[in-house]
Amino acid sequence: MVRVKSRYLLCEINVPDRSRLFLLDDRAVAAAVKAAVARMHGDYGAALCSIRFSVKYLNAHTGIVFLRFPKKCYRLLWSALPFITCIETRGQKIECFLNCLHVGGTIRTCQKFLVKYNTQQLHRMLPKCKSEEERSQVREAILKCCLTRGNKQEFGEESDSEDDEEQ
């Protein structure tokens, strides 16, 4: 049995103003990536990008996206990603840049990495908390993901609690 191999890029969308992340949807991200690839690599790139490229997951709270590229040409397509400066959605331009965090062969490995990464972010958030209430919430979230690391269901909860902090 041979399966069709892909590469999943786990990217973080960095924006100056976090509240604008909610405007994003996966179609807008896909269009931005396709436009960047076409701009950088011309028709050849656009052709490669039309084969198996898709946006697999988008978390509008934390600004995390999973991009799927064919394994054969993912490096070429990836080299166009740094040239994305804005994403157009619903008639608005969101200035942003994509920062690749992890490259994985399956969604599963990417998800494992993301759980680890989000836990790390909680730890980074703790010293920055301003009020006591926030602090206790973050502490609780850290504790929760320490106890149930690796459990898929808890992962959803954990990332939710992180989002509460960021607003």
């Binding site: 100056p16 990836w78 080299s79 990603l81 740094p82 942003c96 994509l98 690749c100 965090l101």
Partner: peptide, 12 residues
């Protein structure tokens, strides 16, 4: 906004 992550630069 003009900064990029280290892995992106590596690929660049």
């Amino acid at each position: 906004l003009e900064l990029r992550g280290p892995y992106d630069i590596t690929n660049l």
